[in-house]
Write a protein that binds this DNA or RNA. Structure first.
Lengths: 346, 346
DNA sequence: AACGCCAATGTAATCGTTTGCAGTAATTAA
DNA sequence: TTAATTACTGCAAACGATTACATTGGCGTT
């Protein structure tokens, strides 16, 4: 009681507002959040007092009392990846619209970092979670067993999960069909890590499109790039070093980073795009557009994806929906630029 | 008291741990955070109980009580800008190392969004703030008068501010000197918004370098690009449409986004880089590297900048440093690639 | 033996906000 | 006139963790 007047953040609390408005703190609280429960005259008095003192509610306290922190946790794989950054932006905007605040973390595709992020998060009592799951998510998510969670961009494989993803299979088949339509027969693919659902689905799309066109699936044309630029580079190098007759005439790359590597490897080998090799990447970006020749890509509605994921989560929080699994797929968009052309006549 | 056993988050509180360990909650608390104040035997008992119940401390509660939330607010200008994303990453990593959690916001260079971010932030009782200030920051920051704040990348102009920035003047003069060294005389610049300190400093660096080389400063060679791609495009278009004798032979662009616009405008006009025009950008990025020809740039140590800003802030929080202003400048690094060459012989 | 001291623990107040309950006054119904 | 209803308001108990203060018992000193 001794230090009552000297709070640490020189906080102006409800108590102070109440005193100035000559009401109890209970009434002051109601005046601010339950206008109908308080006489108009009293209410204006409280509002004025709050204004005068520059009162700002303390979310820690109200969060503690109400059991709602008005925060959500977000774990993306890598803020430096433009697609992921776009996801984050969509989430942020949706959250801000409903007055939620976001704790943002990067997993850098490492399950360990994901786990640490979840541990940090836990103590802050977020009301929900949006996560781009790493391969370890199935285990890690047990750390927050009762937290409403949306899996974004990929699925962890957990039953009863809510997911918001793109139509990877459809996006890929469109791209491959485009290449087939141009006359390509030897179409290679650089795939990501099969522990990540997008890689599996994109691979499946590739396979299905070939099959559908009656082109046999050849294992030697599918190399793993491990989601990284370096992996893309070495995979592309290997594919493009084949003797001309076996060398693919088109290359489909399963993600952003690997595509850069593939393009650089192509340049390094002195091959020209699209004359020697057509290339299609997954996920659009600034560099894909400004590249010369500009890259044809399967583009994802990343902003919408993030926005939608957040809206879905908040919907889950507001109306106490049953915890049934839900699954949303957004369509991709194939953008044909300059990196694809018919194969050279042989 | 009625619902004591049925907490909302099915929270396991200290109370529960204490009961299981047969001590008071006070002792349980001490066992966890003040090991030396508790008998070893008791401590292990508490730790074991905590482990068994999967106890997780509630930061809302401890934050409320201690007046320390272990969170910091971060407002960057745009998460989609790779440089800014890198700042965020540096901050995050530094924060995580000291067990702080980050509230991340985007201002999108709009003072209004910055203000709203600060308002959101306020209620969550962050212990500090790192902000890439918009032009309105000088006003906006009054919303959080006693919050330890680091200004990152730019200065708001507030007295007594702590700033962490790069040496914009030095970085620019190096770049301009490089162009001068190649033999350029008509060197144009596309500047940003002078309400932002980096634009002012980079412009000053440009001016100083010319002066030092005895080249007169010409107002018609300096155009505003307003920090956006579009602005860069129109400014470059105007500059490069001049009659050959007056057309600049080199172009220095004050930031990332504007540089893209400038490059696209150059391409659109059918001019080739670096034969017709040498271009240097400020701030490196993936597209600057992969561009053909690869762009020469003044690169900033963005990760370090963010990391350092966070460390500085946390330092301020830990040891109760006096609130003197401080100012850190990191050096830039000029990267010479393929977009600069001697001017054409006339 | 009497005293002081220290270590270990418990009691209870506190952080700021919310809310069930109870109380008061004013209004309406009977 | 009395009872019942309504509309406001205040009291006080939460939320979970921390910590000043009080209490206990054990030890050493004189």
């Amino acid at each position: 009681m001794i230090l009552k007047g000297c709070n640490r953040f020189q906080m102006i609390g409800l108590e102070a507002v109440a005193k100035l408005a000559q009401v109890s703190s209970a009434t002051a609280s109601r005046a601010l959040s339950r206008p109908d429960k308080v006489a108009l005259e009293t209410r204006t008095r409280v509002l004025q007092a709050a204004e005068e003192l520059g009162y700002q509610p303390n979310h820690l306290a109200s969060g503690l009392r109400k059991g709602k922190s008005r925060t959500i946790g977000v774990i993306i794989s890598d803020i430096l990846n433009p697609g992921q950054a776009m996801l984050a932006k969509g989430i942020q905007d949706a959250a801000a619209k409903s007055d939620y605040t976001v704790f943002l973390f990067n997993s850098d595709e490492e399950s360990d970092k994901e786990r640490r992020a979840l541990e940090s998060l836990r103590g802050h009592m977020p009301q929900g979670l949006i996560v781009v799951p790493t391969p370890g998510a199935k285990t890690n998510l047990k750390l927050v067993p009762n937290l409403p969670t949306i899996e974004l961009d990929r699925a962890s494989g957990l039953k009863n999960a809510h997911t918001v993803m793109v139509d990877n299979i459809g996006g890929t088949t469109t791209a491959i069909n485009h290449l087939i339509g141009l006359g390509h027969k030897r179409i290679a693919m650089i795939v990501g890590d099969f522990a990540i659902s997008t890689a599996v689905e994109r691979h499946q799309g590739y396979r299905e499109a070939l099959e559908h066109a009656g082109i046999p699936y050849r294992e030697d044309l599918v190399l793993a790039g491990h989601h990284r630029e370096d992996g893309g580079r070495t995979a592309a190098h290997k594919l493009l070093s084949k003797p001309l007759k076996q060398r693919p005439t088109a290359l489909f790359v399963g993600n952003n980073e690997m595509t850069i590597g593939a393009v650089l490897a192509t340049r390094a080998l002195g091959l020209s795009i699209p004359e020697d090799i057509s290339i299609v990447g997954f996920d659009d970006s600034r560099w894909a557009m400004t590249l010369h020749p500009a890259l044809s890509v399967v583009s994802q509605p990343a902003y919408d994806l993030g926005y939608l994921a957040c809206e879905t989560l908040l919907g889950l929080l507001e109306r106490h929906k049953p915890p049934n699994a839900s699954s949303v797929r957004l369509a991709t968009n194939f953008i044909s630029r300059e990196s694809t052309a018919p194969p050279r006549k042989t």
